[in-house]
């Protein structure tokens, strides 16, 4: 038999022009190929090619940072699928949600989205606890901890804006309770301390139709405009901001000396 026939299908595939054009270094078998597998992939090169041993242990990292990012991607995908069926209007929002579970094949997309969202809040919190308990915020990583705090706040705001979209009693009243607090913002809320000072003569600049709560809700109550506003915040605005902060977060992990560890 010739050598040629000894080759497995996989090996033959590996030699083809198509395969070589996609994965330059072949199936990662040697040390060099394995390093290249990480360096050559746009997705995997978030990682360094080599890590200290403790860094790959679940017991050290709890995998929480990675899971947070995984959940963000997961929520983006299920969110996009939900957007195909959902119309953010007072007229359709609620019935579209009902249809999601009753008419759409594989109707657990909303469940996946909601439970992943709750999980993400929890996992981001646990990530913070882990980073605190290992003292990983200490110099030179202090700036990245701050970025992480912002990402945690964004996670909660994402979850909060999404809470309104089903447009049921649970949704509007939870958001009413939450956004009522904005009314009391110092200087900028119509029931906030100092708001009365922002006046020209007798004309108050901050009133119920111009304060920060009005800006958030797009009206005096949680209504049609609020639904659209929260929809845009939830699907576009906050994810956009979060992605920028995530890029900085991941970049800075590498630039600040990679994962923390004992010296």
């Amino acid at each position: 038999m010739s050598d040629k026939n000894d080759k497995s299908l996989l090996e033959k595939m590996e030699e083809s022009q198509v395969w070589k054009s996609i994965i330059r270094s072949g199936i990662p078998r040697t040390r060099r190929q394995r390093m290249h597998a990480i360096l050559g992939s746009v997705f995997l090169h978030l990682h360094p090619a080599r890590l200290p041993k403790h860094a790959v242990k679940v017991g050290y990292t709890w995998c929480m940072g990675g899971l947070s990012f995984f959940l963000f991607v997961n929520l983006t995908i299920t969110g996009i699928l939900l957007m195909f069926y959902y119309r953010p209007t007072v007229e359709y929002a609620f019935t579209d949600i009902i249809d999601l579970s009753e008419q759409v094949p594989l109707g657990i997309m909303r469940e996946l989205h909601r439970w992943a969202a709750h999980s993400m809040v929890l996992i981001v919190w646990l990530h913070m606890v882990r980073v605190f308990m290992t003292g990983s915020y200490k110099p030179p990583r202090e700036f990245n901890w701050g970025i992480g705090v912002i990402l945690m706040v964004l996670t909660m705001l994402l979850s909060f804006t999404g809470y309104l979209l089903p447009w049921d009693q649970l949704a509007i009243w939870a958001v009413t309770v939450g956004s009522n607090m904005a009314r009391a913002t110092p200087f900028l809320g119509n029931e906030g301390p100092g708001a009365a000072l922002l006046a020209i003569g007798d004309i108050n600049l901050i009133h119920v139709g111009s304060d920060v709560r009005f800006a958030l809700l797009g009206g005096r109550f949680v209504g049609e405009a609020t639904l659209l506003r929260f929809y845009v915040l939830h699907c576009i605005a906050i994810p956009f901001v979060a992605m920028i902060f995530m890029a900085v977060h991941f970049w800075r992990i590498r630039k600040d000396g990679g994962i923390s560890g004992p010296l």
């Binding site: 990662p28 040390r31 394995r34 390093m35 597998a37 990480i38 995997l44 990682h47 360094p48 090619a49 080599r50 890590l51 200290p52 041993k53 403790h54 860094a55 790959v56 242990k57 050290y60 560890g261 004992p262």
Partner: peptide, 15 residues
């Protein structure tokens, strides 16, 4: 958590 800094593992496949 301490390991010899020169004794690193490869991210593919270990991580």
């Amino acid at each position: 958590e301490y390991n010899d800094p020169d004794d690193k593992v490869l991210v593919w496949p270990d991580l």
